[in-house]
Structure formats: structure tokens, C-alpha cells
Design a protein around this nucleic acid. Structure first.
Lengths: 227, 227
DNA sequence: GTTAAGACCTTCATCTGATGAAAAAGTAAC
DNA sequence: GTTACTTTTTCATCAGATGAAGGTCTTAAC
């Protein structure tokens, strides 16, 4: 399943083409027919494959893939995310997070606010330490999504955080840079605490717009350095 | 797969409990062991199940389900969505769509703008006809998401539209009501056409806030009528 | 009585072989 | 050239066997 999935999402098995027949996969991957069939069925369940009797198994068009499946996201971002994917991710955050912060300000109960404040404290506590800071950052944003009391929204953020973890190595975040982001996060937390949805949204927009600009810059540098 | 998935998402197989062993499912569902195993594997791929050797197969906690999987969403919203799920869906649109419209205004190319205008025309053309109007409405919002040039965002909307199709029967939309929503949609299209991201966002917020208020009202009425 | 090592049992994991069904491809008749 | 038939390919499903991993139970030593 992993082998096939990574090949499809990675692009070496293009949509529309048919994958080797069961028997060939058995010998190629060195497993039994049952294993092949179960793997193919799982990938079909994720929208990557479609099996047709007597016509083989073909790779479905990208439009029908479960793009927000944890495995599919990993195969897409894991080894080295493409610059285009980094843009997509940054844009998605800009589109989503301000609105999520707004709903969080509308729906947050006392416990949710407390968890956001704790996450904010962890952010301040780790500002000098790049690695833990990234985790604290992810935890802060997750706490905001959790405050919106909406499992679909929280699920989307969890998938985004999978991708963000893969992208973070591209970001060359300095300690100074981390500290600069603290006031923005503080404003988000404060607005949610005061149930001020407009301010929560604007504060979060500030945070993710900065992140998007950073990502664009990092992607540029990265492209210049390695190519 | 369908039978088990619907039972899990529907709640009659609670998280943490173990499902019947393979042999029992074989006789219960009237299929072979291979079919059972393939189905269980697919559900495991969607995060609903977890198999452990010698310990049976258990239902995973809700937090690890692929909530934005098309099948999982169908099982959740299909027969009759719960009022709580309608709220979740309406909140998700409020959180997501204004931001998506903003990014659409930033990224839309000429072809994307044209497709939005076509969808808008279809909206006007079907305003007197409730059923086609709903489809035109879904198509308009999809065109906006498509304009953002972001496959993850578009995927999220496609999943939302699956849920919206199930919810629409709850909405008792009148022809007058439909016509009242036209100016809002017009404003969204115009703002995107003019690449005015702030206005696109505000216009879309107006549209989805109205939809949220309608949904809340309909859910109330529905609850009163049937219980 | 307590404890720990060993046998045993349950259950999923995987392989293999066989049969069936559906669709495509080839073939022959007209 | 078209149509109807046959063959082949390939997935769908069932059934049986073996293996591995984890839990449970017995039993014997202390």
C-alpha cells in the first residue's frame, strides 16, 4: 500500500495509466495476492485507484483523490515538498485560519480559552529554542481550532499540521524571527478571550500572512540554493 | 465495508469496542473472509478501525477518523443529519468560505472569473425553480473555490457540498428566499472580478451568515415538527 | 500462598489454489 | 463492413492451510 501510494502521489504512476496486474505486483513486491488486493482496496478507498473487472486497475484523476487523507498528504509533502505545494499550503492557511479564529471567538468556552492561554505560555517559554517552538506554534493554532467546537474544522487543521511538519525544515526560522511572531499570537489569544470575533480574525490574518510571506521567501531561497 | 462503516459512524458500534471476529462477520454478512478482510482494511485506512493480532479489531476514537472522507461524510449526513451536525456544517462554511473568496480574488485568472460569471448566470436563470437552484448554488460556490487555484481548498469544498446535498431537504427554501440571496452572490462575483479581496471576503461572509441563520431556523422548526 | 515459566488458545496476517463473472479482444459468417 | 459468437484477460470471491503475536491458563518451584 505504501509503495504503490507513494508512487502514485509522487507522480511516477500517472493518472489514467493502469498499474501492473495483480500477478505482476505479487512478484514485483514479493507479497501474496491477498496483500496486494488489500492494499489496492485501501488505495481505492482513498480515491487513488479504481478497479475494473477484466480491464485492470487504473490510477484515478487527481481530482478524485482524498487530498486530506493523512497518508496522501504524507506522500505528497514528506520527502521534499515542491515549491508549488508550499504555496498551496500557505494560501490554505490564509483562507482558513482567520475564519477559524473568528468562529473560535464565537464558540470558545472557558476551558477552550484556558487551553489557548496555556499554549500561548508555551510559545513564550520556547521562543529561544527553534525545535520546541515549532511544536508550540502548532499546538497554539490547534488550540484555536479546537476552541471553535467543530470537529470538521479541527480535522482540517490536523491535516494541515501534518503538512506543516514536513515543510518546517524549509523554513530557516531564527530566534529573533520567532520572537517577532509573539505579539501577533498574543493578540489572537486576547481577542478570543474577549470573544471579539472581528479582532480575532484580523489578528490571525496578520499571523498567517506573515507566515505566507516567510514561506514564499524561504521557497525562493531554497530554489536558488539547490538548483 | 458500507455496512460496517455506516454502523460505526452511526454510533451503534462505539469507539473502543471491538467488532465481531472475522469468522462471525463472514456468517453475519454472508460473505467470504477475503471480502471481510478487504472491507476492514479499507475502514482501517479511513481511520475507523484498528486491527491487532490476537486482540481482535477495535473501533478507533472519533478523533482519528478521516472526517473529510467522502464515505465517512455520507455515513454521517446521509440518512438524516443531526441538528448538531447541521450547526457544525454551517459554522464550517462561515469559517472557510469568506477566506476562500478572499484568496480567490487574489488568485483568480480570466478563465476562473468567467466560470464564476457563468455560474452566477445559472443562479439567476434557476431562481424560480428550487431544485435546480440548489445545484446552481453549489456550482457557484465551487467556482469560487476553484478560482483560488488551490486543490486542497477545492477538495474541502467538494466534501462540504456532499454534506450540503444531504442537508438541503431540511431547508424549506422558497422562491422568494432564493431571490433574496442573489444580490449577495452578485457582490461576491463582482468583487472577485475586480480582484478586490476584502470586498469578496465581506460579500461571501454575508452570504454564508445568512445561510447559517437559515440553517439554525430550519433546524429549530424541524426539531419542533418531528419531535 | 505466591510467583514465574511454560503450554495452549485465540485471532489476525499471509499465502495458495480454485472457481466465477464481466468486459475486452479476436474471429468468423453474412 | 457489420454483426454475432467465442476466447481471453483480469478482477471478485471463496476456501483451506500455515504462521505469528499476544493473552490466558496451568503447573511446579519456592
Amino acid at each position: 500500500m505504501q509503495a504503490l501510494g507513494a508512487r502514485i502521489v509522487g507522480g511516477s504512476l500517472a493518472p489514467g495509466t493502469s498499474i501492473p496486474i495483480e500477478e505482476e505486483l505479487v512478484s514485483e513486491l514479493g507479497v501474496g495476492r491477498s496483500a496486494v488486493r488489500e492494499g489496492v482496496k485501501v488505495l481505492a478507498g482513498k480515491g487513488l485507484l479504481e478497479t475494473r473487472r477484466s480491464a485492470g486497475t487504473i490510477v484515478r484523476p487527481r481530482a478524485s483523490w482524498n487530498l486530506l487523507d493523512a497518508d496522501v498528504l504524507s506522500w505528497r509533502f514528506e520527502p521534499q515538498p515542491r515549491p508549488e505545494d508550499i504555496r498551496v499550503l500557505a494560501d490554505l492557511r490564509v483562507a482558513l485560519e482567520p475564519g477559524a479564529a473568528r468562529v473560535a471567538a464565537e464558540r470558545a468556552d472557558a476551558a477552550a480559552v484556558r487551553r489557548i492561554d496555556e499554549a500561548l505560555a508555551a510559545l513564550y517559554a520556547t521562543a529561544d529554542d527553534p525545535e520546541p517552538f515549532i511544536e508550540a506554534d502548532l499546538a497554539f493554532h490547534q488550540a484555536v481550532f479546537a476552541a471553535a467546537d467543530n470537529d470538521l474544522l479541527l480535522y482540517i487543521y490536523d491535516m494541515i499540521s501534518i503538512a506543516l511538519r514536513s515543510v518546517r525544515q524549509v523554513h530557516t526560522r531564527s530566534v529573533e524571527h520567532n520572537k517577532e511572531t509573539l505579539p501577533g499570537h498574543e493578540r489572537v489569544a486576547q481577542a478570543i478571550r474577549r470573544r471579539h470575533h472581528r479582532k480575532a480574525e484580523e489578528a490571525m490574518r496578520g499571523v498567517v500572512e506573515v507566515a505566507r510571506a516567510d514561506a514564499a521567501r524561504s521557497a525562493d531561497q531554497h530554489a536558488r540554493l539547490c538548483c
